[in-house]
Design a protein around this nucleic acid. Structure first.
Lengths: 188, 188
DNA sequence: GGATTCCTTTTACATTTGTTAAATAATCGA
DNA sequence: TCGATTATTTAACAAATGTAAAAGGAATCC
């Protein structure tokens, strides 16, 4: 639990009261590889903090499995397009490396916003950062070549490639596995 | 100015006090087609509300002009990756149809967050919506074909295509003008 | 430890998209 | 309105990526 508050402290200091209030709506979850955390069709009402392991958000397009994003240690994972609209999500969360997560009840969290402005501010900042990351990612999908996207990943997050199966990385980069294999071959 | 508050009211009710505080940090700007609103290299410290006209965010990749996004009447435009990080932006804002904008001083706005929690909440919700739109757009760039993206635009926002030059739409869809022309030809 | 399953690469070919250049079409300003 | 500029389309060819199928590796399970 201390890991979570160290993560929060990077964004916003919290009073003991506020910390306790958050503690009340959290629970620790242990999950094994391949387990599903939130199924497709379910409205997102939980925000997860990844303490250990890796999770991904994925969906199906024409029956093909597409990875939208990954979350590693010390980061937040949530299907925001459902969380912020309260509509059912076409996406699911799956564990791809044995994980320890902290589940934050979002319904209760949003209620805490009225009581502790510092909590509202904390999550505002967390999601602002997520927004910025998404804008940057969109830019890379919009006008970088697949090879540029792969190289950037190789350079910025080599750990990524060691721990995540390539089949997931391919769709994350917006290409097929075959195409990714070809790119890897040319870069050797 | 009333248009702005009607837009805000969709997200969050504001007291007269809060409204007055916002009014203090706003100014109206009239701009002609092709005028630059915020140049490349400048740190974004202004959030604009588009009352009339169209604006776009664009940048250069290998010397080629890429449109990241458009904003029409009744929407907000800001280079969030700069606004939320206070880093200089590689992007610029340009007017593509004579416009009337309301400029909101973001530095002063963020100060108002401490005085009026309702204002912080308002902008939290506005940017949460922007975040959701960006996630959806990323999905379309990640795994829809260019033709699917064009058709979706044609279907969901025909107005878009009437008012925005195709040269801007092409890069917005992540393709070249030539490719867009071909897609349009096959859909006739 | 061997069989099975899953992951990754390779091959061959089809399709899409990019590039460059030229031709039309539309718009704008004097 | 005319000329000039800008926008869009078309053509021809090159490059990148997709598809389907097969083969080789790696991991996993009894």
């Amino acid at each position: 639990m201390e890991t979570l508050f160290r993560f929060f402290a990077q964004f916003q200091p919290l009073s003991t009261d506020a910390q306790d209030a958050i503690r009340e709506i959290c629970s620790v979850v242990h999950l094994k590889k391949n387990e599903e955390l939130q199924p497709i069709g379910h409205t997102c009402r939980t925000i997860y903090f990844v303490k250990k392991g890796i999770a991904r958000i994925y969906y199906y397009k024409d029956g093909i499995d597409i990875t939208e994003s990954f979350s590693f240690e010390n980061s937040i994972i949530a299907r925001v397009e459902s969380l912020f609209t309260t509509k059912p999500s076409r996406k699911a969360i799956q564990i791809i490396e044995d994980a320890e997560l902290i589940a934050i009840n979002a319904t209760q969290l949003f209620r805490l916003y009225d009581i502790h402005p510092s909590i509202e501010r904390l999550f505002r900042k967390i999601f602002e950062k997520g927004y910025v990351e998404t804008v940057n990612r969109m830019e890379s999908l919009q006008f970088h070549t697949a090879e540029e996207r792969y190289s950037a990943l190789l350079h910025e997050a080599p750990d990524f490639l060691r721990r995540v199966p390539l089949k997931y990385i391919a769709s994350y980069l917006g290409i097929t596995q075959v195409s990714l294999s070809r790119i890897r071959a040319t870069l050797k």
